[in-house]
Amino acid sequence: MKKQSLKILALVMLFTFGISISAYAFTTGYRSFAELAAAEDPSDYTIKTNDIGSDTTILAIHGGGIERGTSELVEALNGYGKYNTYSFEGLKAADNGSLFMKAINFDEPTAVSLVNKSDYTVSVIGAAGDDEVTYIGGQNKLLAELIRLHLTAKGYNVKTLSIPDRIAGVMDSNIVNKNKLFNDSYQLGGVQIAISKGLRDKLATDSGTLNDYSGTINQALSESWPTIVELMKKIDNNKSEGFLNRFNPEKRNFDKKIQKALEKGSKNPKELIEDVKAVSEE
């Protein structure tokens, strides 16, 4: 009986923690776009795409009424004219949550094609909570940290997610991680930005906050990130030779140096760039 009580308590704690981060943490949703399209009226959703041939794509897979504020942010970033953008938007008068598809199941063909041909990807989704918090995850830890530092410098409350958080965005099946191989070598993955309802509501109604928030992300992507990419290419080009090369030590060496840069604990974007530069020259 005691063991059973502990199990029940553990489940309650897990449920409480998960639901505090994402209202959709336990939502099954549709398992594919084909399943959604077969069940839903086409007039209840729309797909907006702007492919300008950029190396960076920004997604809102739960836009419109599904997770209010996400497509507004992507549209604001689209305004800078530097990124491919994609939004899947719910248009129902109510119950747009019924159009939900998990990021790991999101396979709408236009989105998949856009991500597959992009070097870098960012997905904006929603999280629960009336407070104003940004949760950042995804496989591209370096870009995630860069965006975090830019947002933090502007006074935003940002938390980094990883396993076992349900919206950490680290799974290979997550659409944001299906971009092109970095430097034709290996999968770098993308960044998933989960924004609390409180902040999303503000982004949807306050143009000043929307412009500031989107401008900060744009600065990270268009100003700081290209510098870091060149430094990462330098790390990747420092390839090992000899016997160990047949076991592909390049990826291991690359990951090790990126992790070393992250462990230095940069306090701002400039410091992160300097830390990546330092490890690239070792």
Rank of each mutant, 00 (worst) to 15 (best):
G265D: 10
T152K: 14
T16F: 14
K102H: 10
A194E: 07
R200Y: 08
S207P: 06
I163G: 14
T46V: 07
Y156C: 02
K154M: 10
G198V: 00
V276C: 10
V124E: 03
V74T: 08
N211S: 12
L99H: 00
F100S: 08
P269Y: 05
K2E: 10
I217W: 02
N183H: 15
G65P: 02
D201L: 13
T134Y: 11
D201H: 11
L161Q: 09
I147G: 07
T28V: 11
G138E: 00
H150E: 08
K270V: 15
P249Y: 04
K180C: 08
S20E: 02
A60Y: 03
E223S: 15
Y80M: 00
A23K: 09
A204W: 04
A94N: 10
D95E: 07
T134H: 03
I8L: 10
R200C: 06
T28D: 15
D275C: 06
F26M: 01
K154P: 10
A144H: 00
E241Q: 10
N245I: 08
I47P: 02
T205S: 14
L210E: 02
R252L: 10
L6W: 15
M171I: 13
K260M: 09
N211V: 05
Q192L: 12
E271W: 03
S173Y: 05
E67H: 00
A127Y: 14
V122G: 01
L151G: 03
V115Q: 10
V158Q: 05
E281H: 12
K159A: 13
G64H: 04
D172I: 11
G137Q: 06
K178P: 02
R200I: 04
N248G: 07
A128N: 12
V122C: 03
D41G: 03
D131C: 07
G126F: 05
D184I: 04
V170K: 14
I61R: 00
K251S: 01
Q259R: 14
L221A: 13
F247A: 09
D51M: 08
A76Y: 01
N211F: 09
I58Q: 01
A261K: 07
V122D: 10
S71Y: 02
L11P: 02
K260H: 14
M1D: 13
D44E: 12
A76F: 07
Y186K: 09
S173Q: 07
M232N: 05
M1A: 12
R68V: 11
